[in-house]
Structures are given as structure tokens and as C-alpha cells.
Design a protein around this nucleic acid. Sequence first.
DNA 1: CGTCCCTCTTGAACACGTTCAAAACGAGGA
DNA 2: TCCTCGTTTTGAACGTGTTCAAGAGGGACG
Lengths: 222, 222
Amino acid sequence: MPHVAKSEETRSLIVTTAMRLFTENGYDRTTMRAIAAGAGVSVGNAYYYFSSKEQLIQGFYDEIARQHLDAARARIDGETAFAARLQAVLLCWLDIAEPYQRFGTQFFVNAADPESPLSPFSDDSSAAREASIGLMREVVDGSDVKLDPELRDQLPELLWLYQMGVVLFWVHDRSAGQKRSRMLVERSVPLLARLAALSRLRVFRPVSREIVDLIRDLAKKD
Amino acid sequence: MPHVAKSEETRSLIVTTAMRLFTENGYDRTTMRAIAAGAGVSVGNAYYYFSSKEQLIQGFYDEIARQHLDAARARIDGETAFAARLQAVLLCWLDIAEPYQRFGTQFFVNAADPESPLSPFSDDSSAAREASIGLMREVVDGSDVKLDPELRDQLPELLWLYQMGVVLFWVHDRSAGQKRSRMLVERSVPLLARLAALSRLRVFRPVSREIVDLIRDLAKKD
DNA sequence: CGTCCCTCTTGAACACGTTCAAAACGAGGA
DNA sequence: TCCTCGTTTTGAACGTGTTCAAGAGGGACG
């Protein structure tokens, strides 16, 4: 098993250089030639490790997700209120992602392509997606919220979708410090929590049931 | 005022050729050189009329929107049930957009870029956006639905956002004839209608109010 | 040492979107 | 007819992401 260490070193040197240049100059203005030159390798070598420029940010995406998972777990530890837990998780994401919004935008645009392996719905992203949904499950299960059991099963996936919506808003958010995204979270989370509570009311039951069924059917063969 | 007719002719020849090639081979696999050759002009000439390849689809986008407006108005004429009107408008969009889903995907990916003039939130798209929101206003006003007056004001904009969500789903929908998108519409529209009806209940009032306020605040300076 | 083989590396070459200086065109006047 | 000037058209050239045939490096085995 030769050169494994060396190989890993080259790979990480390339991705590190790429991330530095992306944050410095933006995604579009950073060329593959500049990345290769900065890392002291040839263009072809970069392509030996990463199948495309887009692919270079996959590792970065994973890094953000990993950081978020850790930080979010620490933040919700001990907290039992559902709304507080959910809000902490989302604000935590905004904190961590803030430095990268400039080129993150370009990244998330690429991710919007259904054919791209970077799409949050793609097979290649399933590991990261499962981890995020798992975090939402922790948010629900670690809280004292009372829910229709059917809804409880689907809720983590729904919350993940909600998070994707927040990210979509964030991508378009040009306010200082992403104030608007924070406002969206701070005010929509309590709303969601109240809706979840209301869902246990008699009048609301059939609607709640249908939502759960619809989501389940849409998720089939996906 | 010389050559105006000739100029317009060249312009439309280019866009027509582009649309034909896009639908035949997809957006990515259609080169600017092929478009120019197909239209019998030089590459530079295409760029004289359209500032970029992306820009070529703006006209196409407008065309779909115009078709949808006309067809949707015809379909909701005489119908007074809110859910039926809304559903008709959305299914109508799916019908009209169906032939273009293959390259439409690429288009909507470009549109997801907040910097792009093709973004549905951009200034360049404001005319089309206003028209779409106006259609949703017709959906509401022409129906016999009873609503909190505050909600009634915001509802068209909310419904437009909902439509954008449906489009986002449609872009990722790989089922035959976009069956899944149709299912989403057919089952989520009645849900929305029931929620709107429920919103008049006492318990629901404060939640409904807060949603309206949140949307209004988020829309500020946008 | 020589030979094979697999991993890693190279950089020229390709295809594409885009730009631009120059040319062609055509109407209106001298 | 010839000149002028704005509009339209050209195609070579540039910078980009990506590919690929060729080579370098180094361990395993005879």
C-alpha cells in the first residue's frame, strides 16, 4: 500500500488551497490553474483527485455539516423546549455558514441542479442528508413536545425540508450579518412550534393526518 | 430609423433557433457556435443581440408566463371555489411547462442564482413576478372564500411563493409526465384551502396574524 | 540488477462562452 | 456619384474547465 500518506497529503493540500482562494476571491474568479499553481501541482493532478471544480466544494460542504453537527449538539444539550432546540440548531447553522456566504451562494446554486451530485437530494449527498435529518430527530426526541405519533415520525424530515427553505432564503439574503435570515428563524420557529401544538386539537387532526400522508407518498421512490 | 425590420428579424431568428436546439439537445449540449450556425449568423452577431447564453432564455421565460396567464384565466373563468381555482392555475402551469422540463431544469438552476437577472426575485423579473402575483390575486378575489382581511391582502404573494415551491419540486421531478408534481398540487391545494378556512377559527387567529406580520416584515426592502 | 505493474503526475490540447477591433452595410446628404 | 456616420456583422483570439496520452516513481519479484 504505497504512498497512501503522500497521496492524502496532496489531496488535502489541493482542497485547502481551493477553499482559501474561493473565500479570498470568490468561486467564479478562482481558476483551476490558480488552484493548481497555489498548491504547487499540475492542473491534471487536481483532476486526478477531484473530478470537477464543483466536486472540490463537496469536501467543504461536509466540513461545514460536521462542524454544525457538533456545535448544534452542544447548544441544545440540556434544553428541553422544542422551539428553543430547533431555533438553536438553525441559528447555529447561520453562525457557522456566515463566513462563507460570499462563495457559498455559488455553491448552493450548483447544488440546486438536480443532476449535480451536490444536490441535497442526490444519492451522493445521502450520508450528509441522513446526518442532518438525524440531528432534527434529536431535536424532537430530546424535547418535551407532545405530538401525534404519526407526525412525530415524519417531523424530522419535515424540519430538514424547512431548514433547506431557510438555506434558500439565506442564499438570497443580502442584509448585514444575514439579519433577515435570523429574523426568519426567530419568528418562524415559534410559529412552527405553535402549529405543532395545535395539531393535537380535534379540528386539526384530519389536516395533520393528510399532511403526514402526503409527505410519505411524495417521499416514496425518492 | 434604418433596418429595424431586418434587425428584429435577425434577433428573432436567433432566439427561435436557440429554443429549437435547446429542446432538441438540452441547454448544456447546445453551443453558441451551433446556435449561430443554425441561424446562419456569426457568433459575435448572436452576442450583439443577447449579452449571454443565459439571456437567450429570458424571452422564452416570458413566453411561457404569457401563455400561462392566458390559459389559466380561461380555466378559472366561472369557477368560484377557491381550491378549484388555485389547482387549475397550478396544473395549467404544469401542462404548459411540460415540453420544456428537460432543458427547463437547466434554466431554473440558472434562475436560482440570486445575482442572475433570471432569478424570480430580481429586479429584471419584477414585471413577470407582478403579473404572476396578480393572477393569484384573481384566484383569491374571484372565489367565494372567506378570509381574515389581513390574510386576504398577503395571500396572493404567499400563493406565488407556494407556486415557486411547486416549481422547485417540479425541477427535481423525474416521474413520467411529472405525475408526482401533479400529485403534490392535487393534494396540497385542498390542504391549503382547509388551512385558510381554519384560519378563521378563534384558536388559529393569533398564529394567522403572526404569519401575516412575518411575511410583511420579510418583504420589506426586498 | 532488470522487469513488471500500479499509483501518481504532467502539460499540451480541446471545446466552450465570451470579447473586440475591424469590416461591411445602407440611408441620407453634398 | 461619392462621402459620412450610425448600425450591424464578422471571425480570430482569449480565458476557462476539462481530457488524455505519455511519463515518472517506487515497490515486488525473479
